[in-house]
Design a protein around this nucleic acid. Structure first.
Lengths: 193, 193
DNA sequence: TTGCCAAACTAACGGTGTTAGTATTATTGT
DNA sequence: ACAATAATACTAACACCGTTAGTTTGGCAA
């Protein structure tokens, strides 16, 4: 009723706040609308539908993840850069698990915008890999490998899969990252021959 | 009306068939009931609720995954066993993506039954790792590392994240697995000193 | 001041999981 | 064989969900 100057940014902000505080599984348009003091149907004056809003939140999340990764590797090279990147990625997943889940559940197939978003995910890793003497195709493979390690680890840690054994989870992650660095150096050595 | 000898096994079977044919996102108690020629409310004579049914499907999926892994490593050792295990895991994820998703979305926190299920996920990997001369704690870490690699890879491949680059996805996976074997041998060598 | 458009509303549709209460069928005990 | 009991089906309903249609209303521009 009492009309407020609602912008898309306001809605995004409220949606992100809702997801981070209540959990992704409790996110709904009705709850979002309530937080904005409007009815759910009124949201459709600002957004096309839930999918579109969700995708935009995903873009935000990817941008945030990219930001922390780039900040982490700033001024670092090779092994130190890989460690810093992996650490930043891991911290993001732990500190903002609900927002991280949004990235996971984005189906990267759909449209071109999502393809450019996929590029944002790739970029920080490619920057780090450029510090090694590797062929372009090898970099593509290795980027996938590192992403698999980082994402797979966080995903399982978040799901509680790592509580089966008492060993320190941080140590496991460091071992995974060191293994990747070992692979990097090994491939670099082979290429140099 | 015309009462049929419905068992929990029948319901499980129908549920799995529904998920695999229509996709996990289209799974619902009403659709499941329709396939069994009963109403949704009647399902509650056989199951406690949707969560319980879902968890049981997860147990089934984990058992299947364990089965193909154990079959794959049968008679193999060390590198060959790792490769066979990783290959079987990957094939399961590609051939039965919807059932694999059920495993992912199981929150392993809840109860004891889920903890034993977590053990089933771990076991084949531990069998393979026992072929290397490693300390018990290192095996725990390495089991997590391999799972992260395999799960992370399939998860991102399924999400379409690997279409950004033209490089062959199978090659990427093989590189990831070879990297893990390299790490294994390296740690074994260090331990031998 | 008068129009007009954007942004709010209400009401409704079809979908979901779930519960309560009721009828009917099959099995069990005498 | 028949009555009592337990299991399994049903209908109706509730509270939620995303979404659409149609309506009212607020604020800005001509």
């Amino acid at each position: 009723m009492a009309r407020q100057g609602l912008t898309r940014a306001d809605i995004m902000e409220a949606a992100i706040e809702l997801i981070e505080s209540e959990g992704l599984h409790r996110f709904s348009l009705r709850e979002l609308a309530a937080r904005l003091h409007i009815k759910a149907a009124s949201l459709y004056n600002h957004i096309r539908n839930m999918d579109e809003l969700y995708t935009q939140i995903g873009f935000y999340a990817i941008a945030e993840l990219k930001k922390v990764q780039l900040a982490a590797i700033d001024g670092k090279r090779r092994g130190a850069a890989v460690e810093a990147l992996a650490d930043a990625y891991h911290r993001f997943g732990k500190e903002r698990p609900e927002i991280y889940k949004v990235i996971l559940s984005l189906p990267m197939v759909k449209n071109d915008a999502l393809q450019t978003a996929a590029g944002d995910i790739v970029e920080p890793i490619m920057v780090v890999l450029s510090g090694y003497g590797l062929a372009e195709e090898q970099k593509m493979h290795l980027q996938r490998v590192l992403r698999s390690i980082m994402h797979g680890f966080i995903s399982q840690e978040e799901a509680g899969c790592f509580r089966h054994f008492p060993a320190d989870v941080g140590d496991s992650y460091r071992m995974a990252v060191q293994g990747f660095i070992l692979l990097l150096e090994n491939l670099e050595k082979e290429a140099r021959i």
